[in-house]
């Protein structure tokens, strides 16, 4: 059936979604670009055009580079740790016995929970007299680490809370991928006398490429918008030691009331996150095809 202008019913179907999507997702992206050339205050409702000045200021903004660095470190850690542990869990659980069925269901639960719940859960575990330090002291390891109060460890704590949820996700995606690997292939490799590492290197690893792509992209996206977990865990502190880029943008816009400046940072974040995701997709996607 051909669509022509008379097909009012067709437009009734297609337009609501597209209109809503354009007004609340696409148009805001354009507005962010537009705003980034202005000095805007919500307090006084002033809009002053200042050209590229916002971007010029970002060059001198330590906090911005600090946050970018934090997010990059977190994403590298999250991509490596979650993927490795995800594969290990998936290989372990890839079995038809009932026990593994139950474990497979349970292992995914962290991903179902709200990041802010996870943030507060880990916040209570990681305080100075929290469970982790108590637990370590049972083994006479009196590290007395201030997991949330020390700038370096604060970032470690954030990574733990972040990876915990992402490992759950990765495991499930890898499991789904493993199911698609034919049994015969595995048996064939085993007969060839390959050892475990070889088997993984030449059989599983290439065949798991699609799952690796999905996981890596999802991990990157969730690191770039990381907000609630960190808010609950460290509040971005101590100082600015764990302030993510999303927190910086929200703080600048709504707490410091510099909407234009925040928009220009958003624009840079959009470019950085878009580029990273794109590179990951292309690079990993190519790997999928190669094999």
């Amino acid at each position: 059936m051909k669509i022509n202008k008379k097909n009012l019913d067709y437009f009734l179907l297609i337009s609501p979604g597209l209109i809503l999507f354009s007004t609340l997702i696409i148009f805001p992206i354009c507005l962010t670009i537009f705003y980034s050339f202005f000095k805007i205050s919500f307090l006084t409702n002033n809009y002053d055009f200042i050209g590229y000045k916002n971007f010029y200021k970002i060059l001198y903004k330590k906090e911005f580079f600090n946050s970018i660095q934090i997010v990059l470190v977190l994403s590298i850690v999250a991509v490596t740790v979650s993927n490795i542990l995800g594969i290990i869990f998936a290989k372990l659980f890839n079995h038809d016995h009932k026990i593994f069925l139950i474990l497979r269901i349970l292992i995914f639960t962290p991903f179902i929970l709200s990041p802010i719940v996870i943030g507060y859960t880990f916040a209570t575990i990681l305080t100075d007299k929290g469970i982790l330090n108590q637990f370590l002291s049972i083994f006479f390891i009196n590290l007395e680490i201030s997991w949330l109060g020390n700038p370096t460890y604060a970032l470690v704590s954030v990574s733990i809370a972040l990876c915990w949820q992402l490992i759950a996700f990765c495991t499930v995606i890898y499991l789904a991928n493993l199911k698609n690997i034919p049994r015969e292939l595995e048996d064939a490799v085993e007969i060839d006398g390959a050892n475990k590492i070889q088997k993984f290197r030449y059989l599983d690893w290439p065949l798991l490429a699609p799952a690796l792509t999905i996981n890596t992209v999802v991990i990157l996206i969730s690191t770039f918008k990381l907000y609630d977990r960190v808010l609950a865990l460290t509040g971005g502190g101590p100082g600015r030691a764990s302030e993510t880029i999303a927190m910086l943008i929200i703080r600048t816009a709504f707490n410091e009331n510099r909407v234009g400046f925040a928009s220009s940072m958003s624009l840079l974040l959009l470019i950085i996150s878009g580029a990273t995701t794109f590179i990951a997709l292309v690079y990993l996607g190519k790997r999928e095809v190669d094999n």
């Binding site: 999507f21 007004t23 609340l24 997702i25 696409i26 148009f27 805001p28 992206i29 507005l31 962010t32 705003y35 992209v217 996206i221 770039f224 918008k225 907000y227 880029i245 999303a246 943008i249 929200i250 816009a253 909407v259 925040a262 928009s263 958003s266 624009l267 974040l269 959009l270 996150s273 878009g274 995701t277």
Partner: peptide, 18 residues
């Protein structure tokens, strides 16, 4: 797809004004 990978903090300010 762009919408799918978009971190919300980027558009929150304009969404709010809209």
């Amino acid at each position: 797809l762009l919408g799918l990978i978009l971190p919300t903090p980027i558009i929150l300010i304009p969404v709010f004004t809209i």
